[in-house]
Nucleic acid binder design. Structure first.
Length: 251
DNA sequence: AAGGCAGCCAACCGCCACCAC
DNA sequence: AGTGGTGGCGGTTGGCTGCCT
C-alpha cells in the first residue's frame, strides 16, 4: 500500500512556524488536548498537517521541555545511553527529562559523535540498532531496555514522572534489566512510554552497582568486548562484568 | 565589506507498528 | 484475515547564522 504524503493537500503550510501559529496550537491543546492529531489543525484553524502540529508540539511547545544548552552530565549520559541503545533517540530521550529525541539526535550529530572513539561510529550504532529490530521481528531473544523497565517497574495508576536525575535514570535501566523471551508490542507503561516487549520470564538484576554505568567500567567494557556481538551474549557479559550476575539466567 | 564555508537546528519525509473495523 | 487510518520513530534536508579569508 502506498500512502499519500501527509501534506499533499494544497494550501497546507510548510516551513518554520510563526509565533501566531504557535499560540493557536498551544491554546487549542491546552483547551482540548490532542486526541486526534490529524483533525487538530482543522479544528484549531491551522493550515498545517497534523504531523507537523504534533512535531511542533512535542519538540518545541510542550511545557515540560527544557530549553538551552546541554550540560556536561547530559552529554555524558547521551554518549553512554547511545552506547547501550544505539540510535534509539526516543528511548534515550525518555531517560533525559525535558529533552526531545530530535534535540538529542541533533546534539549527537553535531557534537557528540565526534567525541566518541573512532571505532564507535554511526554505522556501528546503526548496525546495532538494526540488529535489535531484526532480532525482535524474527522473534529472537533480545534485550529491550524499555520493555525490561516496564516489566519490572511497579505498575502505577497515575503517570510516573520522568526520573529527576541521571543517576536515577541509569538506576532504572540497570535495575530493571531482564531477558526477554516472549515479545509483545504495543504495551504502554505507566510513564506513557510505549513498550516493545513484555517479558514473561523475568530475571531481575536489581542489585547492579550504579557506578558501573556511571564511571568508566561500562565504557571500557564496551570497547574491549566483541563489537559484532549485538545480542544477548553481549548484555549477559555486561552484567557479569558488573559483578552482580553469578550465573546465566534461564531463558 | 563581502563572499564562501561550516555548523547548527527546526522541520520534513518515509517507513513501520498498532489498532479499529 | 485484510485493509485503512493514525501515531511514532529515525534519517535527512534546507535555511539561518556566525566565522573565516
Amino acid at each position: 500500500m502506498v500512502r499519500a504524503p501527509c501534506c499533499e493537500k494544497m494550501g497546507l503550510k510548510k516551513g518554520p512556524w510563526t509565533a501566531e501559529e504557535d499560540q493557536v496550537l498551544v491554546a487549542y491543546i491546552q483547551q482540548h488536548g490532542h486526541e486526534n492529531w490529524r483533525a487538530l489543525p482543522k479544528r484549531a484553524g491551522l493550515l498545517r498537517c497534523g504531523k507537523s502540529c504534533r512535531l511542533r508540539w512535542t519538540n518545541y511547545l510542550r511545557p515540560d521541555i527544557k530549553r538551552g544548552n546541554f550540560t556536561k552530565e547530559e552529554e555524558e549520559a547521551i554518549i553512554k545511553l547511545h552506547e547501550m541503545l544505539g540510535n534509539r533517540w526516543s528511548a534515550i530521550a525518555a531517560r533525559l527529562p525535558g529533552r526531545t529525541d530530535n534535540e538529542i539526535k541533533n546534539v549527537w550529530h553535531t557534537h557528540l559523535k565526534k567525541r566518541v572513539k573512532p571505532n564507535q561510529t554511526v554505522q556501528e550504532s546503526k548496525r546495532r540498532s538494526r540488529s535489535d529490530v531484526e532480532a525482535t521481528r524474527s522473534g529472537a531473544k533480545a534485550i529491550d531496555f524499555q520493555a525490561l523497565q516496564a516489566a519490572t517497574r511497579p505498575k502505577l495508576e497515575s503517570p510516573t514522572p520522568l526520573p529527576v536525575s541521571l543517576e536515577q535514570s541509569y538506576s532504572e535501566i540497570s535495575s530493571s534489566v531482564t531477558i526477554s523471551s516472549n515479545n509483545k508490542r504495543g504495551e504502554t507503561n505507566s510513564a506513557g512510554i510505549k513498550e516493545e516487549v513484555v517479558v514473561s520470564s523475568a530475571h531481575q538484576f536489581s542489585d547492579i552497582d550504579q557506578n558501573f554505568w556511571l564511571d568508566d567500567s561500562f565504557a571500557s567494557f564496551c570497547s574491549s568486548s566483541n563489537k559484532d556481538d549485538d545480542g544477548i551474549d553481549f548484555w549477559l557479559q555486561v552484567f557479569m562484568e558488573a559483578g552482580h550476575l553469578e550465573e546465566l539466567p534461564e531463558i
